[in-house]
Amino acid sequence: MTISAPRYELVGTSRESRSRRVWVITTEGLRRRLTGLNLVLIVLGALIVGVEVVLFTTPGIAGFLNGGGSPQLSNFATPYNSVNYLILATLLTASIGAGAIAGDVATRSIALYLSRPITTLDYLVGKGAAVGLVLVLFFLVPGVAACLFAYFVGNVSGGLALTAMGAFVLVGLVMVVLFTTLALFLSSLTRRPIFAGAAIFGVLVSAEVLAALVRSVTQSVQALYVSPLEDLLAVAQSVFGVTPAIDPLGALGVVFGISAVTALVTYLRVLEVEVVG
């Protein structure tokens, strides 16, 4: 038995481009992070990072704040003298990025995204941009602010301040790429944002501890490549003109390698996401 069917007509409507739809996902993600308790958390995080960067940076340039000494780019590298700043960055990434995908799956709001005319890639790019833009606040803005502070308050030339700003932006972008892809990947593995957050922090800090242990046992700096934080540190120090413990190009390769692999696996993972229950 069949139902006799008259003709149907498709509705013709002009639609905006896919990139605009991706931007909608990004702005929705930003709104979600920039309201209520999330906003308080972000402001606090930005303040802590900002104060830390400025405090780290200021002693480095303190010598020429009153007109003495000859400032150099390496004087701005103090936030990257140890992994402490990066561990704080890890903590902030865990709190900001954990719910990126896991939150949508947990609340099943991913069902509404997937019922719209967007691809998995659109969804991931939108989500990644939302997380990345918040991380920019943490990883780029404080460094740039520190440079402006040094320029206006200290005896730092405009050229040097600009160069240091560029260095902070460059390192910050590498950090944003790594932390964002890692956060999305770990967030795609679970339905619970808190698990994803713990995983982000746990993976990065565990790798750091492991690298330190292996290094102390083997006395080989090569062990530091195991830790993404050490790799970031090497890249940052190199950019600021400080000689790092490991080859910065190799470290950059590891950072981008991790980013590329996690991005690919996240894509494949979300491609298989099904809305059940």
């Binding site: 639609r15 709104r31 229950g277």
Partner: peptide, 15 residues
């Protein structure tokens, strides 16, 4: 583009 889907589960953006 052609489909409007009303799921059974109470899926909304609560915020």
């Amino acid at each position: 583009h052609e489909v409007g889907y009303c799921p059974e589960s109470p899926t909304l953006y609560e915020w």
